[in-house]
Simulated assay, not measured.
Amino acid sequence: MNHLMIYTHPRKRSFNRAILDAVTESLRQGGDEVIVRDLYGIGFQPVLGPSELLGGVGEDVVREQSYVSWADHVVFIYPLWWTGLPAMLKGYIDRVFSYGFAYKYDDGVQIGLLAGKKATLIHTQNKSAEQYEASGMGNALRLTIDEGILAYCGFEVNHHFVFDSILASTAEHRQTWLAQLSERVRKSES
């Protein structure tokens, strides 16, 4: 299986980076192909330009679209900031998941053009999952990201893994999470 890892975190030594490394290693050990796109590392330009609204995309977007086309499974790894995607990742989606590539309308009916692809989301957050669920924000996240972006474009969302209370977690907790995550991602891809 071909896996595309869309990784979004500005720090090279973060728990998000440890997640990326653990999942990538596990998938490769399973004999799968993996491409990592570290959006900060490649200096991805997240700002949608005026010409892109009219359908003109640059070489950088064409390159990223080729990776998405290649992938059977796309894994998004990111921190939750202000109850949403980091601007870098949102800009990636704005530019790369463009009209005519990721979705289109046919007689007013929306069609997801990335059907047949699977997606897994892995995000970290500082609040507890219970706080997000109690406030309704957990459901809002699923609706806006899982459904409103990925399912809209045709992806089958396998799973949305949430690592919560990150600042309060211990090194032991994080090691346990990483050990469990690799197996869970492999199971969720099939």
Rank of each mutant, 00 (worst) to 15 (best):
M1F: 09
N2R: 13
L4Q: 04
M5C: 09
I6G: 01
Y7K: 03
H9D: 08
H9S: 06
P10Y: 04
P10K: 07
K12E: 14
R13T: 14
R17E: 14
I19D: 00
I19Y: 00
L20P: 02
L20R: 08
D21Y: 03
V23H: 11
S26L: 09
G30A: 13
G30N: 11
V34F: 05
V34L: 06
I35F: 01
I35W: 05
V36R: 03
D38M: 10
D38N: 12
I42A: 07
G43A: 10
L48I: 09
G49Y: 11
G49M: 14
P50G: 03
P50W: 14
S51E: 15
L53V: 11
L53T: 04
L54C: 07
G55A: 06
G55L: 12
G56T: 12
G56P: 01
G56W: 08
G58W: 03
G58S: 15
E59M: 05
V61L: 00
R63K: 15
E64Q: 13
E64K: 07
E64D: 15
S66C: 02
V68P: 01
S69I: 01
D72Q: 12
V74W: 07
V75A: 10
F76R: 02
F76Y: 15
F76V: 03
I77V: 13
P79T: 07
L80C: 09
W82N: 15
W82L: 08
T83R: 09
T83D: 06
L85K: 12
A87Q: 07
A87G: 11
M88E: 14
G91Y: 13
I93R: 04
D94P: 05
V96Q: 07
V96T: 14
F97P: 00
S98R: 04
F101T: 04
A102L: 09
K104L: 10
K104R: 15
Y105E: 06
D106K: 12
G108F: 03
V109S: 06
A115P: 05
K117R: 14
K118M: 08
T124R: 00
T124E: 01
T124I: 02
Q125N: 10
N126Y: 13
N126E: 09
N126W: 08
A129H: 11
A129R: 07
E130A: 04
E130C: 01
Q131C: 01
Y132N: 14
Y132D: 05
G136I: 04
N139C: 11
L141T: 03
T144R: 09
G148K: 08
G148N: 09
I149K: 08
A151P: 05
Y152P: 00
Y152L: 00
Y152K: 01
C153E: 04
F155C: 14
F155M: 13
E156T: 15
N158A: 14
N158P: 05
H160C: 15
V162K: 12
V162T: 10
V162E: 02
I166H: 00
A168E: 09
S169H: 07
T170I: 15
T170D: 04
T170A: 12
H173V: 13
R174M: 15
R174P: 03
R174G: 06
R174A: 07
R174E: 15
Q180M: 10
S182P: 09
E183N: 10
R184E: 08
R184P: 01
K187N: 13
S190P: 11
